[in-house]
């Protein structure tokens, strides 16, 4: 489904291309979530407080970004499509429509998975042009989306932001969304859209040449480092100091990362792997049913029924408990534990 309307040169010139790119943005944000969640849930209870806090805070921001992308798409009259089999990435896989330069997995928390996370969150460099397709960094992708939004809006008489009351009511607002490590921004204008993109990019890769994210500047929140730098603290097993820069790397206190206090989850599990073990298979299937229900729920919430998100939150909590249960179940005949497979299962 991804990339249907995207130009090969990665620029966006029409409303259809823009809608397609924003749908890609939703899929892009979503594709990182199962990856992060597997790492997060694989950490054994009561250990690795810093790693847990880091991944948790980042994954909730990714969820926020996904909803912000839905808000932008709704604002220009699009329809976020979330509950379709093609929406769910296959793991191992690539970031949707990226340059496929690295592989993302469903895997336990480890040095290798943190390496991948750093690649996902790598800040854009000025040498790479904005590109909505074949991008290397997520920042590149969003720059292209922002430029596309401005271009199409400027070149459409009356602009592209909907005035329709019913369509405007599809925005997810602070009433429905909270606790996300950022500010939900309802999008009605090009300025709102710019702010939403700035929020996504700012939290993800930070403000130019600093390690901080944009929330403090935008919302007066306490200083928080951008995703890349927060993961880098785990990678380097050392904290940043406020005076550190991207170049300096972290020079603060050492932290202990307990790489072994982790469930040995089978990498990239599939329901097919558990066919021989009906009790276990049923639990993986049960996880996937809840995951699919959640996608349905978010789809409907972002298509005119925002109140549904309350139930979606309950589903997210259930997913967590079901995933952790799976990681406690040994896969017979292997040294691995089971794990959530994030497959579309009606």
């Amino acid at each position: 489904m991804a990339g249907k309307h995207t130009r090969d040169d990665g620029t966006i010139r029409t409303l259809a291309e823009l809608k397609s790119a924003l749908q890609n943005a939703i899929e892009l944000e979503h594709s990182t979530i199962p990856t992060y969640l597997c790492a997060l849930y694989s950490i054994q209870d009561g250990t690795n407080q810093k790693a847990v806090e880091t991944i948790r805070s980042i994954v909730v921001e990714e969820m926020l970004h996904m909803i912000l992308a839905c808000n932008i798409l709704n604002a220009i009259g699009g329809e976020p499509a979330i509950n379709k089999p093609g929406f769910v990435p296959t793991y191992p896989g690539h970031l949707p429509d990226s340059d496929n330069s690295f592989v993302i997995n469903l895997a336990k928390f480890s040095r290798e998975s943190v390496d991948v996370f750093l690649k996902i969150e790598k800040p854009a460099t000025t040498s790479e042009p904005p590109k909505a397709k074949g991008y290397q960094t997520i920042g590149q992708f969003y720059q292209a989306v922002r430029i596309g939004l401005e271009y199409v809006n400027d070149n459409t008489p009356g602009g592209i932001f909907t005035k329709d009351k019913k369509q405007r009511a599809k925005q997810i607002t602070a009433e429905h969304y909270y606790g996300s490590g950022g500010q939900i921004i309802p999008v009605y204008t090009i300025d709102d859209a710019r702010e939403a993109i700035a929020e996504i990019v700012g939290q993800g890769e930070g403000i130019d040449d600093t390690i901080e994210d944009s929330d403090q500047q935008m919302f007066g929140q306490g200083i928080e480092y951008a995703h890349y730098f927060r993961f880098n603290e785990l990678h380097e097993e050392r904290l940043y100091k406020d005076t550190d820069t991207p170049k300096s790397g972290p020079t603060g206190d050492r932290i202990v990362v307990e790489w072994d206090a982790v469930y040995n989850m089978k990498p990239n599990p599939k329901m097919d792997d558990f066919k021989a073990y009906p009790e276990l298979l049923e639990k993986v299937r049960d996880f996937n049913r809840t995951y699919t229900l959640l996608l349905d729920n978010i789809h409907n919430a972002c298509n005119g029924q925002p109140d549904l998100l309350m139930k979606g939150v309950a589903m997210m909590y259930q997913l967590k408990y079901k995933a952790i249960a799976l990681m406690n179940i040994p896969v017979p005949g292997t040294r691995y534990m089971a794990g959530p497979s994030f497959e579309f299962e009606k």
Partner: peptide, 20 residues
């Protein structure tokens, strides 16, 4: 611009914004 902000936990601004 933004509504009344529920007062979160004393340790983290994103914990406790809603009864869970």
């Amino acid at each position: 611009k933004y509504d009344y902000n529920p007062v979160p936990s004393i340790w983290d601004a994103y914990t406790g914004q809603r009864c869970e």
